[in-house]
Nucleic acid binder design. Structure first.
Lengths: 218, 218
DNA sequence: ATTACTAATATCCGAGTAT
DNA sequence: TATACTCGGATATTAGTAA
């Protein structure tokens, strides 16, 4: 299907051709698209040829209607854009649920962090983290996260022990609100740690090896 | 903006260019779009020229990212499709509020009709109709309505007077539920009569001459 | 491997015009 | 008025290469 025909078909749809035979003269179409009457006429013939529109040709004017084939074509274009903006507005990382070493739990439960979570994320995390191991293509998205700003979590000292700074991203797993806690320590980590006010393994019935999608709002 | 560039830009978005610099070679792009490597290279240069993408050119490969301008462009395309499918799934008729002759009120308040409205539309109409005059391109949509089935309203007799059958369409005006009452009498009428449980002129602060959109679910 | 130039070719567009 | 044909100039695409 020729590229220039897509926009003509879209235009016909926008002026009413999705429903019913709509009066569309080649002159009108030409003016609206900024092309010549001759070219508009040609485009209409091409669309007819491809069976993307049908037409009732009267003495004075023609009536055009988009066919099911044409509408399907437009729907597939539409779904491309839906996918694209799902990509643009959210970042979805797929990974596998794994068991950590309890390290996450140790950090998350530190008062110095906990207070910041409540303050900045507006929820009190369950005292543990869900570890998700990322692999393959999604590793690129992980490195993308490393470069995004997110919600900064400050480092602090407690009883002479130093706790490093990090950052968080609000996200959801299967619609359940949560956040990625990304410590600044390493850039080569292939595991992300999720905190949530829920115990996610119970709430979402997750066990090691399950594949989950983490969707981050940008 | 050239037509063929739109689909190239969309494609770049779909393979990751919405977020970040993504490796896209002219060869890869060419194969995916079914054009020659040379043309793909040219398209990339044109997109750069129009500032719809930016690029980091490495020794072995280039990384491409869609600019804000490019993203805005794609968003406007997206909104065209949203409008189009809003049109496909709903029928929106625009018209001007006018004063009737009180005829609508006379009919609507007949018990023979009133009972059917409550039974079939699930609301008890306010005792009057809102008249909306249709003109221009929207007249075609009106004739479309004449051909749709809708919710049938039976005719009846009362005190020797005959009341004709008609049909209704559930719709909304600015989100307020209402229905179009279409009497079967004439096909050349340019006014539609709206019934609603509310007195719409008050509820929506309408006066004669105001333009309103009536949205019918198909 | 890349990207992208030049030159040849294919396609598109619109003025003039027929119907 | 319409739609739509022909045909020459404009534009787009690609093959052959260079860098």
């Amino acid at each position: 299907m020729k590229n220039s025909l897509i926009s003509v078909l879209k235009h016909i749809g926008l002026v009413g051709g999705v429903h019913d035979f709509t009066p569309i003269s080649s002159r009108m179409l030409a003016d609206e698209l900024g092309i010549s009457q001759q070219s508009a006429s040609k485009k209409i013939l091409e669309l007819l040829e491809d069976e993307l529109i049908t037409r009732r040709l009267g003495a004075r004017r023609q009536f055009i209607k988009i066919t099911d084939k044409g509408l399907n074509f437009l729907r597939s274009e539409y779904s491309d854009y839906q996918r694209l903006f799902e990509l643009a507005d959210y970042l979805t990382i797929r990974g596998v649920v794994t068991s950590g070493l309890g390290e996450g739990k140790y950090y998350v439960t530190q008062k110095g962090y906990m207070d910041q979570f409540m303050d900045k994320l507006w929820f009190k995390p369950y005292e543990g983290t869900l570890n998700i191991k990322i692999s393959g293509r999604d590793l690129n998205k992980l490195s993308l996260i490393k470069n995004l700003d997110g919600i900064p979590i400050d480092g602090f000292e407690d009883h002479g022990r130093t706790f490093g700074k990090g950052k968080c991203f609000l996200c959801d797993i299967q619609g359940v609100e949560c956040a990625i806690m990304d410590p600044n320590r390493t850039h080569y980590e292939k595991v992300i740690e999720i905190i949530s006010k829920h115990y996610l393994r119970n709430k979402l019935k997750l066990k090691d090896g399950d594949v989950v999608e983490v969707r981050i709002a940008l």
